[in-house]
Each structure stands twice: as structure tokens, then as C-alpha cells.
Design a protein around this nucleic acid. Structure first.
Length: 494
RNA sequence: GCAGAUGUGAUCUAGUCUGGUUAGGAUUUUGGCCUUCCAAGCCAACUGCUCGGGUUCAAAUCCCGGCAUCUGCACCA
């Protein structure tokens, strides 16, 4: 058929540009019926998996609008802003501080806009493209400002990341959860970034959904609190900074990452868990998954360790970042302690410390897109080979033909399955067309009532991935459906 | 944001250069007929020239502008 993922995503109700009928705005997307459900299921799997890592990891929620002071403390007010200069001839935009740094070799951070203008003139810098002159520098902050109250006197911004919600709520939750470390606070929600040039579909959006788990812990004792034995002898796909260019990502034993590369055991343990999440829960093939280490230059200064989690996506032309694991030290809580004057230092087992943060950060929209990209195939019609737990519909029920006796049994089975699973009933078109429709939205199993079944009380169950069918007793369907949906029974063993 | 290319029913596209009947096709969707398991066939129906302005007797077609998409550059704490 040759249809691509994007048109399937639109045609079958997954995702497309927001406000299409008015010509749309770049960087904003809406989810349709299938997409919203798929996203919800991904989030459910994510929550189940990561909150299960520790009894003291919890889901919270926080506001999308934050007061300026909190973003001053987090560093976003100053660092999420770029000083831009534009060429007055060709209009090319450049980072003013980078132009100066490249010329002088000295940091231009902290210079005021006027000082930068002065420096640019002093150094005689011209447009890199056309040698034109520069307009005066102006700041471009990637945060969306929000006017709060009738007079707009309170300056606020849409949050650029969900993480701050966890940091701002740390102290109270530490009390609520009876002063224990580690404490994990997970947030799934919207974040906003005024990207200069959003591109590549949902990969860079101005309004995006993040799923983040902020783990507050004592780096000295955290490792001992984890089931580190689990990762013994296990390998992780990693691309280390040192081997870039020389080789591609390769499987490395967890022990080697710890002993030879000096990564903290708690960090490697969470890498191992993230890999398990992707390979086993979400169904990403092992050869399309890797951790990509960020060098000191590439990562933000407060990140002591930073690996991107990348998946190879054909729609985006290679390995792309879907998530990140960051060891942020005590940067976040220390900053909020300093700016808010609230004490973030805690006392656990007689030891006083400002907890460190291990951040697991996921871009939900990217991950949902990755599901479509990875699981899409056009070998017969379009097929989405989504794992049963993620598929918008788990089952579909069809009468082989639109005849009263078949229809009534099919409807009866549909109502039965619908009570426990997301199930679709369809009697329109040929049976092949109905199977094809289900392939396109990733429904893993179709139940068909036929004439043979009328006589001996059976129905057929059709497997999306193989198109094979098995005949089962109608009375067993409820039990079998549960097994198939939960993965405790495989289709082959029916 | 800059430069270039592109924008036709739900989806994919012909037509645009060289302005001129009811904008053509394929797929999808809906209804009907037929049909005992993988987008079968037949009949019927719905939906379209990205938006705004201009030129012209006449614009999907030419010109200007907006918006969006793609590619390159820049950007991506």
C-alpha cells in the first residue's frame, strides 16, 4: 500500500496538528480518539513500571503556571533565555554571547544586553553570512509569560518542565511520607517551550507532555537500598562519550559500567530498569535502543551525569532522544533553599543532608509517536503491531456476515468482553475489510462468530500479527481473553 | 528566524508551465445488493482547489501577502 505513518495517524484518529481548520500553528498537536487512548495506555504502563520500583515513589500533580520567583531560583529565568542579535541586512539570527565567546575565548555569560552590544562593536563583529551589521541585542526567553490577575502585577510563566513541581513540593511530601529517602515524585503533565522553529512533527513541540520521576535520595546510601543483584550479569546498550566515532552503541555489562567507567551503582540500576521498560513493556526491538552519554560540554552544568535514551525511528531518520536520565546532584533543592529561604536540608538516620536528585525524564508525545513509528508496517495493509496492553482496542467482535443469528451472538459476546476490556463491535463491510481496519489501529485480537460456531458453540480468534486463527469454545472466551490481554496466555498456545 | 521548494475531498494524487465546460482518478467512509474468513464484486451517496487581497470578461492555474509542511542554515537552558 505504501501508506506512511503520518497519514495513517491522521486517517485513523491518532494525532495531527491543532486548529487545522484555521491553518494551524507550528508546534501544537491534538490527539484523536485512538491517539488519546494510546497515550493514556503508555502513561499507565509507565506509571505501573516506575512507581513499582519503590514503595516510596508516588504520583503527584502540580500547576502548569509558576510564579516568577520559582523560575528565577530554578535558573530558567536567566538560562532559558538567549541573547539574540539579528543582521540588519540578511536577517540571520545569532547568539550574541556565542559570537563574543568565539572571538575572545572568554565567557560572555552575565553580560548585559548593552554590554554585549558594546563588545560586538568593539570587536568589529559582522554577520557571519553576509558581513552585514547587527541590530541591538535582545533577549529571547523560551518561556511563555502569563498575565495573572486583572492588573497582571504578578509575573508568571507556563512551566518549561514538570520537574519544578516535584522540587517545589518536596518538603511537604517528605513530611507526608514520613521522612524517608529515597522519595520519588512522579508528574505527568504539560510543559511549554516557545521553540524558535519547531520542526519534525511531534519531535519538537511548543506544548508537550512530560512524564518525569524525580527521585530524592542520599547518594551514599541509595545504592544499598536497591535490588542491585537484579542487574548482575546483565548488559545495557550504551554509546559512551569515549567510544563515539570509533564504534556504535554496544552492549556493556552493568558491572563494567560501575567498575571500569565509574558510574554509581544506583545510576546504572536505573539505566537497567529503563532499558527493561523499553524492551519488555513497550516492545522496542533491542537493536533500535541505546543510551547515549552526553559529554561535559553537551550537558547542563548542574547535571553530574546525563545519558539520553534514544530509539531509532525511521520517520525521524535515525536514533532520536525519547527520554533522559540525569543525576542532578543537590542543585535543585539547594537553589530553592537559597531563594525561598525554606530549609531543604533533611535529617535521615541521624544524617543531615540536602537530598540529591536522580531524574528520569520522558517526552510522552515522542514516545507515543515512537510507538506508531516502531510498530507500523505496511507489509499487507497498514498494521500497528502494538503490544496488547497499549492497543486502543484489545478486542474486536464480528459476525461473519450480517445475519440475525450471527449478529445476536456477536453482540452478546461484545457486551461480555466490553465489561472488562476495550472492545469494538463491527458488522460493516467484508470480513477482510474489518480485519484490515483493526490491523490499522493495532487491535491485537478479533473474535468472529461463524456458522460452524453456531452449531458447536465456538468462535474463532484471529491474531493480528500472524493472521492465524484458532477456534475456541464460546464459554471459554472470557478466560482466554483475560489471558491474551494480560499476556499470561500466548496466542500460539491456544 | 533566513533561503529554496511545496499546499487539490478523510487519505494519496492528475490538472498549474501555456487562465476558459459540471476539477479527473485511486483508496477510505456511509447505504443497498451479493457474499460461509483476510481491504472481492456491483449500484448509489457524502466530502475538495491552504487563507486573504490583486490582475482579468474569466483564476486551482498569473501576481502580492499570511499560515502551514519539507530541505538546508541558525536555534534546541
Amino acid at each position: 500500500m505504501g501508506e506512511d505513518v503520518q497519514s495513517l495517524a491522521k486517517r485513523r484518529g491518532f494525532i495531527w496538528q491543532s486548529a487545522e481548520i484555521y491553518g494551524a500553528l507550528a508546534g501544537f498537536y491534538d490527539y484523536g480518539a485512538m491517539g488519546a487512548t494510546l497515550k493514556r495506555r503508555w502513561e499507565d504502563v509507565w506509571l505501573d513500571f516506575f512507581l513499582d520500583l519503590n514503595d516510596n515513589y508516588h504520583l503527584i500533580d502540580s500547576t502548569t503556571i509558576l510564579p516568577e520567583a520559582s523560575l528565577k531560583a530554578s535558573g530558567h529565568l536567566d538560562s532559558f533565555t538567549d541573547p539574540l542579535v539579528e543582521c540588519n541586512k540578511c536577517g540571520s539570527a545569532f547568539r550574541a554571547d556565542q559570537l563574543i565567546e568565539n572571538e575572545t575565548g572568554e565567557s560572555a555569560e552575565g553580560l548585559s544586553l548593552e554590554e554585549m552590544d558594546g563588545k560586538l562593536t568593539e570587536l568589529g563583529l559582522r554577520c557571519l553570512k553576509c558581513k552585514g551589521g547587527f541590530d541591538s541585542a535582545r533577549t529571547f526567553n523560551m518561556m511563555f509569560p502569563v498575565q495573572v490577575g486583572t492588573k497582571g502585577g504578578d509575573v508568571a510563566y507556563l512551566r518549561p518542565e514538570t520537574a519544578q513541581g516535584a522540587y517545589l513540593n518536596f518538603k511537604r511530601h517528605f513530611e507526608i511520607m514520613r521522612r524517608k529517602l529515597p522519595l520519588g515524585l512522579a508528574i505527568i503533565g504539560k510543559a511549554y517551550r516557545n521553540e524558535i522553529a519547531p520542526r519534525q512533527g511531534v519531535y519538537r513541540m511548543r506544548e508537550l507532555i512530560q512524564a518525569e520521576l524525580q527521585i530524592f535520595m542520599d547518594p551514599e546510601t541509595f545504592g544499598a537500598q536497591l535490588e542491585l543483584d537484579e542487574m548482575k550479569g546483565k548488559e545495557i546498550m550504551v554509546q559512551l562519550v569515549g567510544s563515539r566515532g570509533r564504534s556504535n552503541a554496544e552492549p556493556v555489562l552493568c558491572e563494567i559500567l560501575i567498575d571500569a567507567h565509574g558510574l554509581p551503582p544506583f545510576f546504572v540500576y536505573h539505566m537497567y530498569k529503563i532499558q527493561e521498560f523499553y524492551l519488555e513493556e513497550v516492545g522496542i526491538p533491542g537493536d533500535k535502543f541505546r543510551f547515549f552519554e552526553k559529554s561535559e560540554k553537551e550537558r547542563a552544568f548542574y547535571n553530574l551525569l546525563h545519558f539520553d535514551i534514544e530509539v531509532e525511528l525511521s520517520t525521524l531518520g535515525g536514533f532520536r532522544e525519547l527520554a533522559g536520565i540525569h543525576y542532578r546532584g543537590d542543585y535543585d533543592l539547594s537553589r530553592h533553599q537559597k531563594h525561598s529561604k525554606e530549609k531543604m536540608e533533611v535529617s535521615v538516620d541521624g544524617k543531615r543532608l540536602v537530598p540529591h536528585v536522580l531524574e528520569l525524564s520522558f517526552g510522552v508525545d515522542r514516545n507515543v509517536w515512537a510507538l506508531l513509528d516502531i510498530h507500523f508496517s505496511d507489509e499487507r495493509t497498514g498494521i500497528l503491531r502494538l503490544p496488547p496492553r497499549l492497543a486502543p482496542y484489545t478486542f474486536a467482535v464480528f459476525p461473519l456476515m450480517k445475519k440475525d443469528d450471527l449478529v445476536s451472538i456477536a453482540k452478546e459476546l461484545h457486551y461480555m468482553l466490553k465489561c472488562r476490556f476495550s472492545t469494538l463491535y463491527d458488522a460493516s463491510g467484508s470480513i477482510g475489510k474489518r480485519y484490515a481496519r483493526m490491523d490499522e489501529i493495532g487491535t491485537p485480537f478479533c473474535v468472529t462468530v461463524d456458522y460452524d460456531g453456531l452449531e458447536d458453540g465456538t468462535v474463532t480468534v484471529r491474531d493480528r500479527d500472524s493472521t492465524d486463527q484458532k477456534r475456541v469454545k464460546k464459554d471459554d472466551l472470557d478466560r482466554i481473553a483475560f489471558g491474551l490481554a494480560s499476556g499470561t496466555i500466548s496466542f500460539k498456545d491456544l
